[in-house]
């Protein structure tokens, strides 16, 4: 069966959240997340990412709308919905006097699962926490505490895992471990919804991306489609002799001068039929403009992200 043909694991329709203070955190969100994918939710601070996740998980009440997790309504059928959700919130919040092992056992029980020491051992080993299982949480470093948060969220074998800013304030090693774990989970069939400020991470990891701003979803797209559709490529030519102005003979190409006329910049559509590069190079040759180096680059998701948010501001 193709992944797309399966019913979505998460379906959000017309979700609104207005706080008593008059603040509208979510103004009608519609979103579907497919089973087994890694979905990145991107948006500036205060866009509504955490509110959206919190409503789905049941820690914030919705004003109106409908949320289905695995086909179960999160309000009327909360047991079935919540038992397949794992949540790693942004802030580390742990019972610091408990041991690592006890807190993980607690989480599994809380979510209604019967004890399974072998499974919990595997999780702690995967997260390099096994040696620390008898330590109290208060004795652990910040990075270790974050691993404990993840272990707790995974303790009841969730099918849908929310990672809210999992790599904020995390060192390089842990970040690498974390992404390796996310990939392993995806391979096991766990659906992952993550928010991150590190857009290059989303670009590396996510199958699809959703952009949220001011409580509304601006766009949901396959990562590859998005990069093709909105991505630009750039050709930078480092000139032999600096130029004062672009010669009129090159008016047909959208060119820019930079670095005091030492570099010529040519931006083109990443997926256009003809890039125009050979023609440009040929013309430069005819005009006797020599260059000593050239470089091409593809625009990053970050640039696409910023360009998407521009009109909304």
């Amino acid at each position: 069966m193709r992944v797309e043909a399966m019913p979505p694991i998460l379906s959000v329709a017309g979700l609104e959240k207005h706080y008593d203070s008059g603040l509208t955190a979510l103004g009608g969100v519609d979103l579907e997340v497919r089973r087994g994918e890694i979905f990145a939710l991107l948006g500036p601070n205060g866009a509504g990412k955490t509110t959206l996740i919190s409503i789905i998980c049941g820690t914030v009440t919705m004003t109106s709308g409908k949320v289905l997790v695995g086909g179960h309504d999160v309000v009327t059928d909360f047991r079935a919905a919540r038992s397949i959700i794992g949540l790693v919130p942004q802030e580390i919040a742990l019972d610091i006097f408990s041991t690592v092992w006890n807190t993980v056992v607690f989480s599994r029980g809380l979510f209604g699962r019967s004890p399974d020491p072998a499974y919990l051992e595997q999780i702690l080993r995967d997260l390099s926490l096994w040696e620390k299982r008898n330590s109290k949480v208060i004795e652990l470093s910040g990075g270790m505490k974050r691993r404990v948060m993840i272990a707790k969220a995974l303790s009841h074998e969730p099918e849908l895992l929310f990672l809210d800013e999992p790599t904020a304030g995390v060192d390089v090693n842990l970040r690498r471990d974390m992404w390796a774990l996310v990939r392993r989970l995806r391979d096991k069939g766990v659906t992952i919804v993550l928010t991150t400020h590190y857009i290059e991470e989303a670009e590396d990891m996510a199958d699809r991306v959703g952009v949220i701003e001011k409580g509304r979803i601006l766009l949901v797209e396959d990562m590859t489609t998005l990069m093709e559709k909105l991505g630009k490529r750039r050709l930078t030519l480092v000139l032999q002799h600096p130029m004062a102005a672009i010669p009129p003979e090159l008016a047909g190409w959208p060119l820019e001068l930079q670095a005091d006329g030492q570099q010529l910049l040519y931006t083109f559509d990443a997926n256009a039929e003809g890039t125009g590069v050979p023609g440009l190079l040929k013309r430069l040759g005819e005009l006797g403009i020599d260059f000593k180096d050239l470089d091409t680059e593809r625009s990053s998701l970050e640039e696409i992200f910023i360009s998407l948010l521009e009109p909304a501001r």
């Binding site: 079935a80 949540l87 919130p89 919040a93 742990l94």
Partner: peptide, 17 residues
Amino acid sequence: FPKFTGTLFELLSAPLS
């Protein structure tokens, strides 16, 4: 105490009435 330390989120997100 869970409210104070923030661990209340786990109780609220659990399949527990």
